[in-house]
Design a protein around this nucleic acid. Sequence first.
DNA 1: GGAATCGGTAAGTTGTAACTTACGGTTCGT
DNA 2: ACGAACCGTAAGTTACAACTTACCGATTCC
Lengths: 109, 109
Amino acid sequence: MAALGALGDPTRRAIFELLVTRPRAVGELANELPVSRPAVSQHLKVLKEVGLVTDHAQGTRRLYRVERRGIAALREYLDRLWDDALLAFATEVERGDDTAAENADKEQS
Amino acid sequence: MAALGALGDPTRRAIFELLVTRPRAVGELANELPVSRPAVSQHLKVLKEVGLVTDHAQGTRRLYRVERRGIAALREYLDRLWDDALLAFATEVERGDDTAAENADKEQS
DNA sequence: GGAATCGGTAAGTTGTAACTTACGGTTCGT
DNA sequence: ACGAACCGTAAGTTACAACTTACCGATTCC
């Protein structure tokens, strides 16, 4: 799941979240961020490599948009983790592992 | 979403995925990973700070387990991104933005 | 054709985070 | 009480990635 590594960077996450609302050009993104245009360009390259965005030349500009499949892949990854965690928890309780049961209801500090 | 930053690191992701299947002690984790035990300990600290794991002293050992709420928060974050992306896409098409419509069905290289 | 706009890439700097080893504290067994 | 097991933290090194500026190619409009 390389996409997680890509979204690990705050600036990249900001770029991606901007692109989620609507497609934008590179300079457009740089204007709304506290980094230079080349920096944005390099981040976009990373996001593109991991399949989170796609680009589309439009005249002299270059429009980047979110690749919805990328988000879907992330969701599937997390869903699997979620299922595994639930399954592990269930088998723990089943085995009489009380520490698991403790965590079930109480949330004492 | 600091949890994304935490899972951005590959080693931390490996640790977390190991913990998803079942709770483990620190040394136990270090044995299955190509890093030292202190390194694992530091990674666990980060994972704990962002609410992805919890620890639980048990004798001289210290059991770490996945905090399911952490996974849930990540899923909610991605779900929101997903919804926003879908909404943005819908309004694009609605406005007659054909580049959005192109992406709908065809996947030409 | 030439100027302007837009963006990718190369090259270089620098902060930081991901490691290591060393040390000390706590718990358990005998 | 002493040794062993287990772990957290401090201190230090180092690799890397996130920036910057500078340069160059491509496209558009006149």
